[in-house]
Design a protein around this nucleic acid. Structure first.
Lengths: 142, 142
DNA sequence: GTGCCACTTCAAGTTCACTTGAGGTCAAGA
DNA sequence: TCTTGACCTCAAGTGAACTTGAAGTGGCAC
């Protein structure tokens, strides 16, 4: 597959694919002249990258996790922490989703200030955690 | 409360609080001299902002949703779409969380390439969606 | 009263994840 | 063979969300 094919199938722009390769997140199997040639497996890898990003991993973090020779592998403690963090995030997002669904049905004009909406959200607020470094992005590949 | 107090209680740096005020996400109740004075309610508001950001809203989007005079209120269709989008994201994150928990227990050295991990993740990959504009950040307040 | 320093403003700088543009190469169809 | 244009590289630009620095102000402990 050439880069345009991968871009089409994955939804990731060619410029981003080159950037990902530079970062070590994906790799081409070779070149035809100057042009990169990719295996179909790159699509799976891209899906994984997409989920990882949605889960809040930076590209650099994922690159180090992918390293198959990988001495700089992320340790189990860190992974467990990440899983816990994700658990808290999922709770919040679930509350937000429910709140949004309520807002859609609610006749009140001010969604974000609607008491019911606020009450639903307060469920999530309880599970406090402190400010973290910027992370996740939403729905990248799928 | 002064800005340092709010920063301490919320975990949001004073510089970010000023930035949020400038963006219209929060507001001070007044000034003592030059210094901003906040109501305790600002903490709730900040928690809401934190969840909103985790859910993928930009600061500008939230500012428009908060506007109480608010003509530029986001419409129900958009909210419903956001809820659906969140639903898909939650599924992916759940898969990622399960995958991470597996990786913690799995004896294989290469987490991200572990067949079981991949299989778990593939559950999430199925619910495909296309590339969207950059959005969510992780666990901001709580 | 007065001095310190936590607060203020405003402009510029930073990071992440890309995108865009200029200038160049080469695989492939006419 | 020749032309076309999709691909290449590399550098610089972009936008979001803040942070940092310089220069100024004024609340409050002494």
């Amino acid at each position: 597959m050439d880069i345009t094919e991968v871009a089409k199938r994955s939804g990731v722009p060619a410029s981003a694919l080159r950037y990902y390769e530079e970062k070590g997140l994906i790799s081409s199997i070779g070149r035809r002249g100057l042009r990169r040639v990719f295996e179909p497996a790159v699509l799976e890898r891209l899906a994984l990258v997409g989920i990882g990003r949605a889960a809040g991993f930076s590209l650099d973090e994922m690159a180090s996790m992918f390293a198959q020779d990988g001495r700089p592998r992320i340790d189990r403690k860190q992974l467990a922490e990440k899983a816990d963090e994700l658990d808290r995030l999922i709770k919040k997002l679930t509350a937000m989703r429910d709140g949004l669904r309520h807002a859609v049905a609610c006749p009140a004009p001010s969604h974000m200030e609607c008491p019911t909406f606020r009450r639903i959200l307060s469920q999530a607020v309880k599970g406090a955690s402190s400010r973290k470094r910027p992370t996740a992005r939403l729905s990248v590949i799928g």
